[in-house]
Design a protein around this nucleic acid. Structure first.
Lengths: 348, 348
DNA sequence: GCCAGGATTGTGACCGGTCACATGGGGCTC
DNA sequence: GAGCCCCATGTGACCGGTCACAATCCTGGC
């Protein structure tokens, strides 16, 4: 019942101690639920705490104990639906565990930001606590690589095919499987093959999504066209779409994310190729607006929030032996069939 | 040149001090650029710092000095484009000022989360440093209200019409003006009036966007229909759109954000009312994908990133007298006319 | 050659907690 | 009733910095 408020200098455990007529250590025991405190004493201390409006100073706690109960999330562009959802999932779980969440944005201005990335990692390391790196894109992957070995870190990665020597814990959604399903869906509609507009790959090698797409094509004995390199936003999809629209053989396109798909559909529209009449398009991620597009978008839903939750749980386990290490379940991607995919046009 | 790496216990200024043969205070002076240190000594200390790979412990700094160089951003749903952009703007500026950014998500589950909101504010307060509350929605507004008076805080608000007695600093984009412009645009195309699908209002009274819309109608002597209450997502727009589609008198609709507009357009499409042929629709915010919709969306662009930057600048000024208080410029909203708005159909 | 006084540098206490260890009382056993 | 052990509590040092003040060095002026 701290009615007075306005305590300029914060009240410390020593203030509480004198108020309760005990030593500061006893107060420390009370706030840490140490068993060996006489109930009557405990009550007295708790009363004093309530009276003075004491709140434990987390900075001092961090300094003295070493553990800071903080996570820093390193990510590029938080405005992308997937990234934002992961962040949301992390925050939610972290909050439940009384952890604070920090954010560091990786400017993915392509080149020369190697130093900037290193600086961000350093900053995150300095602020103590654990680290979660969203490594879906080159900037994230480089950041993950730049994390000093002794720092507790969890990567949210595109594929578990970790680089050699990388034994860091990670979580991932099964992008390969998702792409595989989406591609099979399009093939099952009767398309001869499926083209692919890729998001910037997180690795030098081919991405998980690309792999899943290729696998589906191969199993079906379909021709394997070269993937088109897109960007993250709809603009990249638009460019790629204009290009694909030229080729009348193209009847099905899988896109690395929903934004790309949007751009592709727009380009096809501009080129006079109706979707799904002439060309079918499928996206990736199931962003909230995808269901309301015209045509509504066939896509693969991934549980980003759950991914964030798993990432934190894993980190939490690494940080505190007390926390049980929840196995990081690879959530199964779910194909959502909507209007943008349909059978190919009858052969002319 | 710390080649050894793997310094388990971090090196402190005292370690550096002994290495350089000076006292810890001298080291402190060097890292704080205190003028009165002999150049030769400074060099020796810097060499030792480099040698040992010393990095100043931000936790200890915060504890000892009182200032924590940290900001916590309180916001609901970070997956919304506007919110994520504001966050991005804050992070960017904060990083430049060597501040760390924390995030607290306000679950906007309507009711009874009063306690949850208070808890979030408490958490943010505990983590030290300043606070930025994105108060575009009820949850945010309540959070802003729950911030203890003595805490440095900046609100990102919808309208500067502050509640009585609220003298906290804030930043805002001129939503009223933006809505006014958008409405005038639609009217100028020849529509008799403009209907409005609102986002959940941040205040009990009418929102800034609603006010701007009404003002434009009034000035034009147009009938003033009741605003429809939507939600944040496209689903709400869809519901509202279905309702509006019934009324054939409706030829122009302004929506509280682009997602709502998307849902409205979808609903109109389902109801067989072409956009912009029969009904014109305008959105709000200019989300990245709005330009690529079919039809592309007429909307009002707001500089959310700039808003975030201003918010941080303002807070920074409040936190450090050294930082000059950059005036928080109200960025001018920009009308972006695209395909979704056009003249009303010729009278039958 | 001596002293004032600014330039440098060092010392002790403190921020608000935790940890390791010491100490004072009961209650039990024998 | 002595010896033990455990329960409850207190004391001192420390985490890694900063702040306020004291102490020393060096230099110029007389």
């Amino acid at each position: 019942m701290n009615v007075t408020g306005h305590t300029r200098r914060s009240v410390s455990i020593r203030d509480v101690a004198t108020a309760a007529g005990v030593s500061y250590q006893t107060v420390s025991r009370v706030i840490n639920n140490h068993p060996s405190v006489k109930p009557s004493t405990r009550d007295r201390v708790l009363a004093a705490i309530d009276e003075l409006g004491f709140r434990r100073n987390s900075t001092a706690l961090a300094l003295a104990s070493g553990r800071s109960r903080a996570v820093t999330v390193l990510t590029s562009n938080t405005t992308h639906y997937g990234y934002a959802s992961i962040l949301q999932g992390i925050e939610e779980t972290a909050r439940a565990a009384a952890y604070s969440v920090g954010v560091g944005v990786l400017e993915s201005t392509d080149e020369a930001d190697e130093a900037a990335i290193a600086a961000q990692v350093q900053r995150a390391a300095d602020s103590g606590g654990g680290l979660i790196v969203i490594a879906y894109d080159p900037a994230g992957v480089r950041a993950l690589g730049a994390v000093p070995a002794e720092l507790p870190v969890v990567g949210v990665v595109e594929t578990p095919a970790s680089p050699p020597g990388d034994d860091r814990p990670w979580v991932w959604a099964d992008d390969r499987e998702a792409a595989y399903e989406a591609t099979r869906h399009l093939l099952s509609l009767g398309h001869e093959t499926v083209h692919y507009v890729a998001i910037p790959s997180s690795t030098r090698r081919t991405s998980a999504r690309t792999t899943g797409w290729q696998q589906a094509l191969r199993e079906a004995g379909a021709p394997e066209p070269l993937p088109l390199q897109g960007s993250w936003g709809p603009a990249g999809g638009h460019t790629a779409g204009l290009q694909l629209a030229q080729d009348t053989d193209v009847t099905a396109i899988l896109c690395g994310n929903d934004d790309l798909a949007l751009g592709v559909i727009r380009a096809l529209h501009e080129a006079g190729r109706p979707v799904p009449g002439e060309v079918s398009v499928a996206g990736f991620d199931d962003a909230p607006h995808s269901a309301y597009l015209t045509p509504s978008l066939t896509t693969v839903r991934l549980d980003f929030t759950g991914l964030g939750r798993s990432a934190f749980a894993l980190l939490h386990g690494a940080l505190e032996e007390s926390a049980q290490i929840a196995p990081h379940p690879v959530s199964v991607p779910e194909l959502v069939v909507r209007e943008s995919s349909g059978p190919p046009p009858a052969r002319g």
